[in-house]
Each structure stands twice: as C-alpha cells, then as structure tokens.
C-alpha cells in the first residue's frame, strides 16, 4: 500500500476514536452502557459516510460497508430462518426430545407424519452442495416452482387481471346521469361532483383503450389507429413520470433520514 493510504487510514481511525470518546462522553449521564452506545452511533455514522462516499467515487471504505451489510444480512436471515421456522414451527411438531433440547413448548396435538415431508425435501435441496448428487435437488426445486406457479396463477388472475379489468368498465356519464338538462342545471365542479367523475371515467377509459392500442402490433400505427397509439404513449409517459416523481421523493426521504441521523443523533447539532 502507498504511504498516503496508510496516512489516510490513520487519520480516519483517529477521527473515529475521537468521535467515539466524545459521543460516549455526551451519553455518560443518560445511559449506563454509554461506551457501547457511543461506539454504535459512531460506527453507524462511519458506515453512513462510507456509503455516501460512493457519490464521489468507488473506494475501499464503500466496499467495506457494502460487504459488511451483505454479510450481516445473509447471516441474520439464516439465523432468523432457523430459529423462527425450524425451531419454533417444525421441531415442536416432530419430537418432544428435540423440543426440550431447544426449549420450545412441544405441540403433541399437532403431531403429523406429513411434517416429515418438508424435512425430506429440505435435505434433498441441500444435495445441491454435493458434486455428484446435485441433480437430486431438482426434485424439491420442481415442487417449489410448481406450487408457487399454481398459487400465483390464481392470485394474478383474480386480483391483477379480473378485478382490474372490471374496474375499467366505468359509466362514462357517471352513475347519477339524469339527462343533459339536469346535468347543466346542477353543475357541480367539486372533486366529488358529476363533472369531475365523468372526466375521471373518460380518462380511465381512453387511457386503457389507447394504451392497449399502443401494444397492438398486428396493424400498422397509421391514421386514427396511429393517433390513438400516440395518446397511448402519452399515457404511458405520464405514468412513468408519476412513478419517477415518487421515486425522487423516496430517495430524498432516505437522504433526509440519514442527514437527520448525522446531525441529530451523531453530531447533536439539531434537536
């Protein structure tokens, strides 16, 4: 490593220790374990700044923070899976001895031979790690894919297809249409009024219709068909624009969260 790299690491380490001491000092009257709390807050701030440093350029500090996050998340997930599913859900239904070993209450009433099937499938899935028996893991994988596909098929058909299609069958004149004379004599411009409802229903109808035309490729997009297709593009662009706007808001919100943490919890500049 270069001399400047050593120097930079020494400066960062010194700043970290200084921050830890100062933070622990400021917490000493508030909590008993102020040394650990001071370390945790300083380490969080260090990781936040390490990740933000990627905005300047890729660097070892960013890589450290990224790898730490991936490693800790994977380990945490594995431990959670083991203790919440295998220990809490499966073992009490399989064996009294194992239940007492893991100190979870057994459920004798729920004892069922079928609970051994996921155990066998789970072991078969681990055969993927074996160089020769790796093909066996395809059987439980096929079971997972099959059941997931079956469940999702019904799910999408009901909530994302049929319900959404039925929602586009809207009355274009509104539900309270009593003739054009009644409409103009009772003209209501409020958000829940008949005019706005009619306009909203027309937007839904034309938006869906023109959007579908844009994705119809068996006819050349010319003339009236082409015009409808162009309206469809506009509808899509507006949708993407709204989504992008929300995305920007979401990303800035995360920045707000980190800035609040740095300036309130770490530096204590704002209250």
């Amino acid at each position: 490593m270069k001399k400047t790299t050593y120097l930079l690491m020494a400066v960062i380490s010194a700043l970290f220790v200084l921050s830890w001491i100062l933070k622990a000092g400021s917490l000493s009257g508030e909590t008993d374990n102020y040394v650990i709390q001071g370390f945790l807050i300083t380490f969080s701030a260090f990781l936040t700044l390490s990740v933000l440093s990627f905005l300047y350029a890729d660097n070892p500090l960013y890589k450290f923070a990224e790898h730490l996050f991936v490693g800790v998340s994977a380990a945490f997930w594995m431990c959670m899976g083991f203790w919440t599913t295998i220990v809490q859900n499966l073992i009490p239904r399989l064996s009294d001895g194992l239940s007492s070993f893991f100190e979870v209450p057994p459920q004798p009433g729920d004892y069922n031979f079928f609970f051994f099937i996921p155990v066998i499938l789970g072991i078969l899935l681990l055969m993927r790690l074996s160089p020769k028996g790796g093909w066996i893991s395809r059987w439980p994988l096929a079971f997972i894919i099959g059941t997931t596909a079956g469940l999702n098929f019904v799910r999408y058909l009901r909530s994302d297809f049929i319900k959404q299609i039925s929602n586009t069958f809207v009355p274009l004149l509104g539900t309270e249409w009593q003739g054009i004379g009644h409409f103009f004599s009772n003209l209501d411009l409020s958000a829940s009024g008949q005019l706005v409802t009619m306009a909203a229903n027309w937007v839904i109808f034309l938006g869906v219709f023109c959007g579908l035309i844009y994705f119809y490729f068996s006819k050349e997009h010319k003339g009236a068909f082409g015009a409808a297709s162009k309206v469809g593009i506009w509808v899509l662009m507006l949708t993407f624009g709204a989504s992008f706007g929300y995305t920007v808001m979401g990303r800035i919100s995360l920045l707000v969260g980190r800035i609040t943490f740095l300036f309130r919890d770490w530096l204590e500049i704002i209250s």
Partner: peptide
Amino acid sequence: LTGVMTAQYYPYLGSGQ
C-alpha cells in the same frame, strides 16, 4: 408504502381492493 412503490399500487385503490 415507500415513494418508489406508491404509483404502482394506485390501481388497487381504484378497484376498491
């Protein structure tokens, strides 16, 4: 929902889900 997800879920509001 997070901001990134919100626009995606408005159709479910319209359908009453």
